[in-house]
């Protein structure tokens, strides 16, 4: 009996082994096919993501006549760098750039000061009603900004801020200086710094401001950089408020100045010049992204707000 069984058993095992090999090899083939499909899909999506950027640059370097070709060219036949010069002039971009940069920098600096002081008070100091106040602040984050804008527009008109140089800049900057979200973000960061450091500094007679400057700020620099970038991007991308309060090109910001700048009285648009302006507006954002990618992605993944 045992002798009879033995060959059968070996036969069985070899068959199992063979099956296993088959299974393993088909699995390998399937895996390769799957990987290829994944790469094809990801590559295709990447092309779709990139295409508008490519088309923007491609269009911005064409002559108007070439732009209107029946079958568009994928590389401009005659490269017209002059479109960028023209865009700068026609769109009044220099003024818009300077305005946006000015508003962005001033509001970022002031906003950082306010945020650091408030976050410090919430994270380190004890006072009556601290938790209630903090909860009330967080609750305001739920309300859509449009609701504030209606009254703020009336308020700034009543304060007479919508006319004159300083007034218009003030109106672009001041209503948005306090961001509850940034206070929240920085407070969380401050809370991670051990309280013993603060008490030790107190014993040594270090002032609060010096302690903030020497300990808290260096330790929470990544968060502060994220806030700075998001705030600057916010100024660069803000559209509604500047359009409401700063109606003349001399004081408006880049986004609201851009949309209608390149259509003349006959409703004729010089598309390549328009695309050149769009590229110029996009460029600083790209540079910031290339150099500060880490901070942007970190800030964004925690905030979920655009700009």
């Amino acid at each position: 009996m045992a002798k009879k069984l033995a060959p059968q058993q070996t036969l069985n095992t070899t068959m199992v082994e063979k099956d296993m090999k088959d299974v393993v090899s088909t699995e390998k083939v399937m895996k390769v096919i799957r990987t290829i499909c994944v790469y094809l899909f990801l590559g295709f999506m990447a092309l779709i993501i990139l295409f508008p950027f490519y088309w923007m640059i491609n269009s911005s370097l064409k002559t108007l006549e070439e732009y209107k070709w029946q079958v568009p060219s994928f590389v401009p036949k005659t490269i017209v760098w002059g479109n960028y010069k023209e865009a700068f002039k026609a769109g009044n971009l220099a003024v818009l750039f300077v305005n946006t940069l000015y508003v962005g920098i001033v509001s970022t600096v002031l906003s950082l000061v306010i945020t650091v002081l408030s976050a410090f008070a919430f994270a380190r100091l004890e006072f009556k009603g601290k938790n209630a106040l903090f909860a009330a602040l967080l609750a305001t984050m739920m309300i859509p900004g449009e609701l504030f804008t209606i009254t703020n527009y009336i308020t700034v008109s009543k304060l007479g801020w919508t006319t004159g140089d300083t007034g218009t800049y003030a109106v672009l900057i001041i209503p948005f200086l306090v961001s509850v979200f940034y206070i929240y973000l920085l407070r969380q960061n401050f809370l991670q710094i051990p309280n013993e450091l603060y008490l030790a500094a107190k014993v040594d007679g270090t002032s609060d401001i010096k302690y903030l400057w020497k300990v808290m700020i260096p330790l929470s620099l990544p968060t502060l950089i994220s806030i700075t970038i998001l705030k600057m991007m916010g100024a660069w991308n803000s559209y509604i408020w500047p359009k409401l309060v700063a109606k003349d090109t001399a004081h408006t910001l880049i986004s609201s100045g851009l949309r209608n700048a390149f259509t003349d009285a006959n409703n004729d648009t010089n598309y390549p010049v328009q695309m050149a302006a769009v590229a110029l507006v996009s460029l600083p954002l790209f540079l910031v992204f290339v150099f500060l990618r880490k901070y942007i992605m970190k800030g964004v993944s925690r905030s979920g707000i655009k700009g």
């Binding site: 950027f53 088309w55 954002l285 655009k306």
Partner: peptide
């Protein structure tokens, strides 16, 4: 894939 995030929605809308 992250690139569209760092854009100006007016500008790219025009594209």
């Amino acid at each position: 894939y992250f690139l569209p995030y760092v854009t100006n929605s007016i500008a790219i809308g025009m594209v």
